[in-house]
Design a protein around this nucleic acid. Sequence first.
DNA 1: TGCGATATATGTTGTTATGCAACTAGTGTA
DNA 2: TACACTAGTTGCATAACAACATATATCGCA
Lengths: 169, 169
Amino acid sequence: MPHPAAGTDASVAAHDLEAVTEAVLNASRALIGVAARSIAESSDDVTLPQYRALFVLSSRGPQTVGSLAESLSVHPSTATRLCDRLVAKKLVLRRSTPENRREVSVSLAARGRRLVDEVTARRREDIKAIVRRMPSESHLPTVDALRAFAAAAGELPDEVELAGLVSPA
Amino acid sequence: MPHPAAGTDASVAAHDLEAVTEAVLNASRALIGVAARSIAESSDDVTLPQYRALFVLSSRGPQTVGSLAESLSVHPSTATRLCDRLVAKKLVLRRSTPENRREVSVSLAARGRRLVDEVTARRREDIKAIVRRMPSESHLPTVDALRAFAAAAGELPDEVELAGLVSPA
DNA sequence: TGCGATATATGTTGTTATGCAACTAGTGTA
DNA sequence: TACACTAGTTGCATAACAACATATATCGCA
């Protein structure tokens, strides 16, 4: 209910805020569906926690087991077992570092990288299919709007940042 | 980099397509982080499959165990146990329907509805916090852009439709 | 009435995720 | 060197999820 031509700047701004929020929320439902599908249809079957780990390694590079655990907000022992399974699936490599032989470095194996790429590619294709259905006049405004949104999200603390599925599920 | 005044219509359109897709993909990472966080921080602790079930019931209304299973793309027996747990947590109600006593209708209990509402509210707040950081000039274009996007997504078949976390994980 | 199909539930099994506590090994320092 | 600390692993336990096979009740129909 558009609150017709009313009062102060503040009230107008508030109205905008609600409208934008609602639009983002709706769009995000569709986007989550796309993301979920892209993982579900991946060739190797990985669970969500497993994919999250791969994604962290993909975007932040090799990690110690400890920092991986922290990134995923799980207990170190959980990260150990998670890595066990990913190693068994040949999706990551695990080796103790020469500098500090207590630490164990976990990195993406070729196959793990391929998996993340595949998932991203599928997701990109799905999004593209949707974008193709948009009127082309709205393409450029959409780019601007979403860049502004992503930038605003990026300024926020860790919780939201880098959250390609990284934040706790 | 707006690709200054170049080539054919087709090439410009293709360029737009990529740019929009990329912008959507980036924004979607932030949005997924927000969504994940909103579930993780919910008071009652529910798993992702459990939340998905609640969400289905919330958006499509009471369901038989079978149709719930289908919505979630799981085996009927899996849906039965899932409901067992949700009933135990008093998040859903389960009762056999009078018309067909084989069927069991599952519906949101008050507490389940509250949980979904809470999660949505938290998500909305998080989004709002991000939107507040956007320059206000981009508010209206964002609304237009995202409505166009959501509309385009909505036209697509079931896979994407209504996917507040509904599609397989 | 009786038989096949349908809708759920149950028994069983396997996998994953999760945390805590105890243990091992490596590091750094007093 | 001895001791405290750190990083990771392992044993143990629990819970959820998932599917398959089987059982049970119900329905629809011949």
